[in-house]
Design a protein around this nucleic acid. Structure first.
Lengths: 234, 234
DNA sequence: AAGTGGTCTAGACCACGTA
DNA sequence: ACGTGGTCTAGACCACTTT
């Protein structure tokens, strides 16, 4: 008995459709009516339905295809948005003092696993950078990075003892594509030594690879100190 | 020298604004012109600028406030969207055969850490469920879950040996709010025994807590087998 | 009180993909 | 080929928040 409301907002439409999905009126894989019909049924403009549907599609509730129509996504997923801050900002937003140490920077040939991550066919000279980010003078994040100098030749002139490669790249070489991988790793001898651990601790790892168009820029493994966690809210 | 194009699409506007941010024409914290002025400058309708700006705001590039205007976000972040699938779907989408084992289900008083995660003031009777999800008959994911029976009394009538609590809850008790936490943990004796590990391995952990309105539903710790990783692309 | 982003409408045309 | 979602417009009014 949907009495005429004052007006239909796109949020109302979104809630209505979501409820129909949750109550099974539109089951997994089912095709929904055309936007225009839903608009007529709910008494609003088609663009209002569009707005709601786009949101539902963004949230992974429905799938939309031209000519194919709108369908309830067959496999429900929990879709979460994470903000991965720059180390400096993360430390400072927690009220800590940020520090940075360059461990090593050298030109080396691309190792095969790095070439694979970057979709490179042939090995090329790359800049290999290891650095440590500190919170209150204690290890917070260890980064092991490879930069393709052919894509970013200017980085060879940067003093990475002063500016972290991450901050320099973000400011000077925007990426168009980024692959992210979250995992857990056991602290090996080398990482343990650098981060002042005993070895064997479980560490949270973010691997990130970026491209500018088809040109690989960099791949980096960021290893967080024990106890780190990443939060999101939906 | 922006020559008149065939037409301005919201993607064009987005790219134009993004370039201005990247090149520093609009620096971190800077206020952008009003939508209407940008529309006039770029030769499109205000709603087209709106569309682009909303996208930029969703991506964390700018911040928008009524009357306050649009500003470049002072702290750049990498914003990533992750889909966390149901265990069954994840296993099957990798071509494995899915299995499920209930380890334990019992009513217990709320332990203090669980009460804290759920924003509960007083302890209440809860359903404590431990279960193992299998891929090709090998441990894939161990879940340790607490369900507030006051919010979801029907779950006491469900045979959790047949249906996993996760799948039942997703289908029968939608949540309105969800907290997520990613971390790395060392396999303790109990988890190692359940998952057939030696102990000491680094494990990827997702903790998830959900509410229906203000009513807590469940909090669950999902512990993935060694080698698991979560991917995203931007 | 006023300025700026947010939403809604009605209509038109476009673009993609399925039939 | 054609049906459906995607985009764009011009205008109106609303809602939030800062001045």
């Amino acid at each position: 008995m949907a009495a005429r409301q004052d007006r239909r907002s796109w949020r109302d439409v979104l809630e209505e459709i979501r409820n129909r999905v949750l109550t099974g009126r539109y089951g997994p894989g089912d095709k929904l009516p055309r936007d225009e019909d839903i608009a007529a049924e709910l008494g609003c403009a088609r663009s209002t339905v569009q707005r709601a549907m786009r949101d539902l599609a963004d949230r992974g509730v429905v799938e939309r295809r031209r000519k194919g129509g709108t369908r309830v996504r067959p496999d429900p997923v929990t879709r979460a948005v994470f903000d991965i801050p720059v180390a400096r900002n993360e430390v400072e937003s927690r009220g800590g003092s940020y520090g940075y140490q360059l461990i090593r920077a050298a030109i080396e040939e691309t190792p095969p696993p790095v070439a694979a991550a970057l979709d490179m066919r042939a090995p090329l000279p790359m800049l290999h950078v290891e650095a440590l980010h500190l919170m209150n003078s204690r290890p917070f994040l260890y980064e092991d990075r490879w930069v393709l100098t052919r894509t970013v030749p200017e980085i060879e002139t940067v003093d990475l003892g002063v500016v972290s490669a991450n901050e320099w790249l973000l400011a000077n070489k925007p990426y168009s594509r980024c692959d992210l991988r979250f995992s857990a790793e056991t602290a090996g001898d080398r990482v343990a030594a650098i981060m002042g651990l005993e070895g064997g601790e479980a560490l949270f790892v973010i691997e990130r690879t970026t491209w500018s168009g088809d040109d690989p820029i960099t791949t980096v493994k960021a290893v967080y100190a024990p106890g780190y966690h990443l939060r999101a809210e939906i």
